[in-house]
């Protein structure tokens, strides 16, 4: 059971990392990055490192994801401003 969960987690990590890098859609890339961060936090928790899991979930997934989404929003606004 644990082995199955770990294997699934590892596969999901690789898949989300690949989707985040390979997708042409920036919004989807950012969302997949946040998913990757949350899965990474789970992986740290599975490795008995709850301190790193907390930091990864809060900073890696939460704050970095918010920053990336904000950057995306600013880009979108600038593009909309270019062609009125």
């Amino acid at each position: 059971m644990n082995l199955a969960f770990d294997a699934l987690l590892a596969l999901a990590l690789l898949w989300s990392a690949w989707r985040s890098l390979a997708t042409p859609d920036l919004t989807r890339a950012v969302v997949m990055f946040i998913v990757f961060g949350l899965l990474m936090a789970l992986a740290w928790a599975r490795l008995d490192a709850p301190d790193i899991a907390l930091a990864e979930a809060a900073i890696g997934a939460g704050l970095t994801g918010a920053l990336l989404l904000d950057a995306l929003g600013a880009f979108g606004k600038r593009r909309a401003g270019d062609k009125p």
Partner: peptide
């Protein structure tokens, strides 16, 4: 237990 200033600051 797990916790501390960095995690609390991030929240």
């Amino acid at each position: 237990r797990p916790g501390g200033a960095f995690q609390a600051g991030a929240v």
